[in-house]
């Protein structure tokens, strides 16, 4: 069995998954739609838009929406980036006009504590119940419990079914 590990490892790694860092040779310059020729700026622009919600179609991010308002807001974001505004400034600008609704990541505030911590509180409750239960079951004496009615019934049922055939 142990001999197998190197083999398995090899199998797992063999696919020549091109690494993300694959060198990209310089090509003819094309203009990004953002207008930012600096790739870092371009990436920042898209990352920002991805987490903002379009108000017209409401199911698309500002990055993907083709609605007129989305285009205007993209222009606004671009202009503000050019003016050297930080992401925080830009988000604050949008929230002041459209409310928290534009944020796909709900901010942490009084009304969202339950949202953000609820699942983990749920998990905690689950763990507490689980620990109590396991301890109760583990404290009981060893050995197979006497078959309860259920198991007996299942056994009988199976026997009934199979009985005539044997």
């Amino acid at each position: 069995m142990r001999r197998l590990y190197p083999l398995l490892l090899l199998l797992l790694l063999m696919p020549a998954v091109p690494a993300v860092r694959a060198a990209s040779p310089a090509a003819a310059p094309t203009v990004p739609t953002s207008g930012f020729t600096n790739p870092r700026e371009d990436a920042r622009y898209h990352a920002l838009l991805k987490n903002l919600r379009c108000l017209v179609c409401q199911n698309e991010s500002l990055q993907d929406s083709q609605a007129g308002l989305a285009k205007d807001l993209r222009r606004e974001v671009r202009d503000q980036m050019r003016q050297g505004k930080s992401n925080r400034d830009i988000v604050r600008y949008l929230v002041a006009r459209y409310g928290d609704f534009v944020l796909y990541r709900p901010p942490l505030m009084h009304s969202t504590y339950l949202l953000w911590f609820g699942p983990f509180i749920g998990l905690l409750i689950g763990i507490v119940v689980l620990v109590a239960l396991v301890r109760k079951r583990a404290r009981a004496p060893d050995g197979e419990p006497p078959p309860d009615g259920a198991r007996k019934r299942l056994v009988e049922l199976l026997r009934d079914r199979e009985g005539p055939k044997t």
């Binding site: 987490n51 919600r53 409310g99 928290d100 609704f101 534009v102 944020l103 796909y104 990541r105 709900p106 901010p107 009304s111 969202t112 339950l114 949202l115 953000w116 609820g118 699942p119 749920g122």
Partner: peptide, 27 residues
Amino acid sequence: FAVLLGTLYPLILEGMAVGKISVGPPY
């Protein structure tokens, strides 16, 4: 439960009239 909470939370807040939020992929 996390999925349920995230899906219904906008509804909960709106029902209690304490603002309107979006719960999206980042959450």
